[in-house]
């Protein structure tokens, strides 16, 4: 699956799409594929603050649990409530299934993250293919 060029990526496999001062966050297709069937997503509440590089929640598949790391700092303005009852949507389309919307502290913070091309290179090195 292609990684959208307008997103930025973390080495912990989250993506962020920036629109002005807002950011939308999800996990990558590589992450959902590595986890397998996702059964549970633990997310912060609207109004909570998240900090770049820090854990903001977790995602669990049948096999494993994985922390979620904030790609950028900001305040949570929306949480994808659908994931409480249908976390498997992330498996179906990780690129479009968002988890959080953020009011970003600094949109420039995102510049330090990986581009789609760099992320693809990073995961190909990580898997050794």
């Amino acid at each position: 699956m292609a990684y959208p060029a307008n997103y930025r990526y973390t080495k912990e496999h989250e993506w962020i799409e920036v629109d002005g001062a807002g950011g939308t966050v999800g996990i990558t297709d590589y992450a959902q594929s590595s986890l397998g069937d996702i059964v549970f997503v633990d997310l912060p509440k609207v109004g909570d603050k998240v900090e770049a590089g820090k854990i903001f929640g977790s995602v669990e598949s049948v096999k494993a649990v994985s922390d979620l790391y904030a790609p950028a700092s900001g305040t949570v303005t929306a949480v994808n409530e659908e994931l409480a009852s249908a976390p498997e949507k992330i498996n179906t389309d990780a690129n479009k299934t968002w988890m959080l919307k953020l009011d970003l502290t600094s949109a420039a913070e995102v510049d330090g993250l990986l581009s789609a091309a760099d992320y693809e290179k990073f995961i190909s090195e990580e898997t050794g293919h």
């Binding site: 397998g36 069937d37 598949s61 049948v62 096999k63 498996n91």
Partner: peptide, 9 residues
Amino acid sequence: PVEYTGLIA
């Protein structure tokens, strides 16, 4: 193999 199409299926 740990899974083919998906563990739950």
